[in-house]
Design a protein around this nucleic acid. Structure first.
Length: 710
DNA sequence: CTTAGGG
DNA sequence: CCCTAAG
C-alpha cells in the first residue's frame, strides 16, 4: 500500500475558545457549522486514519523491532519521505536530507552522533526543547531512530543502551531514558543531567528549526519504530506514528511561520498575517471597534460553532475548554467577549484572526476540493486545524494515494489584547506565543469517522470502517492540543519580564488529563508594548487580581480544563492589560443612548398605528428609513417603553416628556393591535387607533377597537 | 435577519 | 439598550 500524502498546512486563524455556554441559537449554529464543516472535513482525519491502518498492517506484517533498519531503508529507498518544504534549508532539513539520502548509519551518525554534546549544546537543546514541544517530539523520534542506527553501527557508549532500549520499546523510552527524555517530551522540566540520549535529543532539537517543527514531526515520526506505539509526543494517546511512513506515505505536515521572530516560540507556527475583516460586520460594529483603545482579536468560537467537525468534535469542544492566558482576567467578559467577537472587525467571521491557510505544497488541495478535507479540532484547547485533502488517485487495490493539506489551523480561545500602538510584528508574536502556549503541550491527533471519534487505535482502518475508496469524506482528523494543566504560577519561578522561551514550565505529562499549557510565559517582545503594558498592569493590578479570583472561581467551576493563569504573572498580565472596566467599555461598549425625540415618537406612533406591532422592520423602513441608528429593535423597544410610559402616571415618567396626545395614541394603538393580532391588516389606514382622543384610559380594546379593518 | 421578550 | 431564544 503506498500512500503518498502531502499536507499543506497553515494556520487559518485562531478561534476563540468557546465558552461553555449554551448555544445562542441552534439554528444559527447549525448554519455556521455547516459552512465550515463542509469545506473542511477530513483531510487530516483521513490521513490519520490511513496512517492508523497502515500501522496496523505494518505491525502485523513487518514486526521488526528495529525500525530504523528495514523500515527506514524502505522509506528512504522509495523516496517516500519527501520534503516538500521549500523554504529555508535549515539544519533540520539537512538532517532530513541526510536521512533520506542514505538512511544508513553513517550519515546519521555523523549527523547525530557526532554532534557535540557539550553542555553548551545541551543548554541550547534544552532551550529548544522547551520552546518547541512538538519539535521535541519530532526530534525525539528521529532521535530514536538515530540512536538506533547508531547502535547498529557502533554502539555509542551510553547512548547505545538508551537507543537500544528505545528501539525496542519506545513506550518505555521515556522511562528508561529517565527524566531527560520526559523532559524533552513535555518540556516541562529542565533538562538537567541529560543522559546521552537526552543530550542528543536536545541537540537534535536544537538543530531543527522551529519552522519545520511540524514537518519534522510528521516526517520523522515514521522513523520511529513502527511497531511500537510511541507515546505521542503530544502527551496524548499514543499514536501510531510508524504507520505514516511505513508505507511510503509521503506525509508532509508542516507549519511554518512567516515571521521568524515567531520562531523563537513554539513550534507550531502560525502564519498569521492579516486580519480578515468579516464582510458582514456592521458599520457600527466596526465603529465600535475602532474606538476601542485596545483591540482584541479573538476568534470567535461559539461553543462549537466553529468547530468544523461534527458532533464528535463538538463534544470534544464542550468537554474541554481552553482558556488562554490572555483571556484570563476577563472572565466576566466571556460573555461580552463573544459579543465583541461578533462585532469585531478584526475577527473573521469564521473565527478570528485568520490567516489564510498557508500552503506550501503546490498541489495542496486548497482549491475547494472538499473531498478529504478534515477538521482538526484541537479538542482541549480548542485549537483546531482544518485540513483540506484530496484524494489523488487510487492505484492498486491496496495502494491509495492521497494528498492532504492542512488548510487551516484554528486556535479557538485566543484572547489577545494588544495596544493599538503595538506593532504588527508584536501582534504576530503575541499570537504565536499564545498559540504556542496552547500547542505547547503537543498535539494529538484524533480520527473522526462520520463525526464520531474513533477511539480504538488498534483497530485497522478496515475494522473501523474507513475505506479509502469509499468514505474518505467521512473521515476527519482532529488535531487536539494536549491540554496542559494549569501550571504553577509562573511568577514563582520566573519573573523575568521577558520570559525567555528557555524558561521551562512544568508540564504535566499525564496524557489523561488534557491540559493547556499555561506555563508558557507570554510576553510581548515589543519593548514598547511591554512598557505600555507594564503600566497597565500596574494600574489595573488591583482590579485585575480581584477579578482574577472571580474568574478563577468561575473557571474552575466551569471547567477544570481551563487553564489557570498565574494571576501574578507579569507576563500574563502583560498580555492582558485591560481589565473589566476598560474592557467593558471597549468591548461591550453600549451604543450611545439616543433618546427619542418627540418627532421620532410621533413618527413611530404613526407607523405603528398603521402597521401595527409585530412588524418592526416595516416600521423601521417606513418611519426610520434613514435613521440608521434606530434599529427595528430599538423601535420595538421604544414602543414598549412608550406603552409603559403611557400607562403610568405622568408623575412617574421621566426624561423628556412625551406629549400626552402621543401617549394616548400609543395606548390606543397598543390596545388595538394587541386586540387584533395585528400584522395582517396592513390595510386599514392610519385612521385606525388613531382617532382616539379619548383614548386616555382606554385600556380596553373597546375604546380603540373602533377602527375596524374591513 | 426578524420577532418577541426579558433584563 | 442589550441579549437571547425562536422563527
Amino acid at each position: 500500500m503506498v500512500l503518498k500524502k502531502r499536507l499543506g498546512y497553515g494556520f487559518n486563524g485562531f478561534q476563540v475558545p468557546f465558552i461553555p455556554r449554551a448555544p445562542r441559537s441552534a439554528r444559527r449554529r447549525g448554519s455556521y457549522k455547516k459552512i465550515n464543516e463542509d469545506s473542511q472535513t477530513c483531510a487530516f482525519e483521513l490521513l490519520a486514519s490511513v496512517a492508523g491502518k497502515l500501522l496496523q498492517e505494518t505491525e502485523s506484517s513487518s514486526a521488526s523491532s528495529n525500525p530504523s533498519e528495514g523500515n527506514d531503508q524502505a522509506l528512504f529507498g522509495k523516496g517516500i519521505l519527501k520534503q516538500e518544504r521549500i523554504d529555508e534549508d535549515e539544519p533540520l532539513k539537512e538532517e532530513c536530507a541526510a536521512y533520506h539520502g542514505s538512511c544508513k548509519e553513517s550519515i546519521f551518525l555523523s549527523e547525530v552522533a557526532s554532534k557535540d554534546i557539550s553542555p553548551k549544546h545541551l543548554q541550547h537543546a534544552e532551550t529548544a526543547l522547551h520552546r518547541t514541544p512538538v519539535i521535541k517530539y519530532c526530534d525525539f523520534s528521529k532521535k530514536v531512530d538515530a540512536d538506533v542506527k547508531a547502535l547498529n553501527c557502533k554502539s555509542e557508549d551510553a547512548l547505545g543502551d538508551y537507543s537500544s532500549r528505545v528501539a525496542e520499546a519506545p513506550q518505555d523510552f521515556r522511562e528508561s531514558s529517565g527524566g531527560n527524555l520526559e523532559n524533552g517530551f513535555t518540556g516541562e522540566e529542565e533538562a538537567e543531567g541529560l543522559g546521552p540520549l537526552g543530550t542528543r535529543v536536545s541537540t537534535f532539537a536544537n538543530k531543527c528549526s522551529l519552522k519545520d517543527a511540524m514537518d519534522v514531526c510528521v516526517n520523522s515520526s515514521p522513523l520511529i519504530d513502527s511497531n511500537s506505539t510511541t507515546k505521542s509526543p503530544f502527551h496524548g494517546e499514543s499514536i501510531p506514528n510508524a504507520s505514516f511512513s511505513e508505507h511510503g506515505n509521503d506525509i508532509i505536515l508542516g507549519c511554518r511561520d512567516d515571521d521568524e521572530k515567531l520562531l523563537r516560540c513554539n513550534k507550531v507556527s502560525t502564519k498569521s498575517r492579516t486580519f480578515r475583516h468579516p464582510q458582514r460586520v456592521a458599520h457600527r460594529r466596526i465603529r465600535k471597534l475602532l474606538t476601542c483603545k485596545y483591540w482584541k482579536a479573538a476568534p470567535k468560537l461559539k461553543d462549537c460553532e466553529l468547530s468544523r467537525s461534527d458532533e464528535g468534535v463538538k463534544s470534544l469542544c464542550h468537554k474541554r475548554k481552553t482558556c488562554y492566558n490572555f483571556g484570563r482576567c476577563q472572565h466576566d467578559n466571556v460573555f461580552k467577549r463573544r459579543k465583541f467577537f461578533d462585532r469585531s472587525s478584526v475577527v473573521t467571521s469564521d473565527g478570528g484572526f485568520s490567516s489564510e491557510s498557508v500552503t506550501n505544497s503546490p498541489d495542496t488541495g486548497t482549491s475547494g476540493n472538499k473531498s478529504g478535507s478534515a477538521t482538526i479540532l484541537p479538542g482541549a484547547s480548542g485549537l483546531s486545524a482544518s485540513v483540506l485533502g484530496r484524494q489523488a488517485s487510487f492505484h492498486t487495490k491496496d495502494s491509495h494515494e492521497m494528498k492532504f493539506s492542512i488548510k487551516s489551523f484554528r486556535v479557538p480561545e485566543l484572547y489577545i489584547e494588544v495596544p493599538e500602538t503595538a506593532t504588527v510584528g508584536s501582534l504576530k508574536r503575541t499570537v504565536v506565543e499564545a498559540v504556542s502556549a496552547i500547542l505547547g503541550g503537543g498535539l494529538r491527533v484524533g480520527v473522526l469517522l462520520h463525526g464520531k471519534k474513533v477511539r480504538d487505535d488498534n483497530r485497522t482502518l478496515l475494522q473501523t470502517g474507513i475505506s479509502c475508496k469509499e468514505n474518505l469524506d467521512t473521515l476527519g482528523f482532529t488535531l487536539e492540543p494536549n491540554s496542559i494543566k494549569a501550571s504553577p504560577p509562573i511568577c514563582s519561578t520566573d519573573r523575568s519580564p521577558l520570559p525567555s522561551p528557555e524558561a521551562p514550565e512544568p508540564l504535566p505529562k499525564s496524557s489523561e488529563s488534557p491540559v493547556i499549557d499555561s506555563g508558557i510565559p507570554y510576553s510581548l517582545p515589543d519593548s514598547s508594548l511591554l512598557t505600555k503594558t507594564g503600566n497597565l498592569v500596574e494600574d489595573n493590578h488591583d482590579s485585575f487580581s480581584s477579578h482574577i479570583d472571580t474568574i478563577t472561581d468561575k473557571m474552575t467551576s466551569d471547567s477544570r480544563d481551563l487553564v489557570t493563569v498565574p494571576a501574578r504573572s507579569t507576563d500574563a498580565l502583560a498580555v492582558v492589560p485591560t481589565c473589566q472596566k476598560t474592557r467593558r467599555s471597549d468591548l461591550a461598549q453600549r451604543r450611545t443612548r439616543r433618546p427619542f425625540s418627540v418627532s421620532e415618537v410621533e413618527a413611530l406612533v404613526e407607523a405603528v398605528e398603521e402597521l401595527g406591532t409585530g412588524r418592526w422592520r416595516d416600521v423601521k423602513l417606513r418611519a426610520f428609513e434613514n435613521a440608521d441608528h434606530r434599529t427595528y429593535v430599538d423601535l420595538k423597544d421604544k414602543w414598549k417603553t412608550l406603552v409603559h410610559t403611557a400607562k403610568i402616571s405622568p408623575q412617574q415618567r421621566r426624561g423628556q416628556p412625551v406629549p400626552q396626545q402621543l401617549l394616548d395614541r400609543v395606548l390606543g394603538a397598543h390596545a388595538y393591535w394587541s386586540q387584533h393580532h395585528g400584522k395582517q391588516n396592513v390595510k386599514h389606514q392610519a385612521g385606525t387607533p388613531r382617532n382616539v382622543e379619548a383614548s386616555t384610559e382606554r385600556l380596553g380594546v373597546e375604546g380603540v377597537a373602533p377602527i375596524v379593518m374591513m
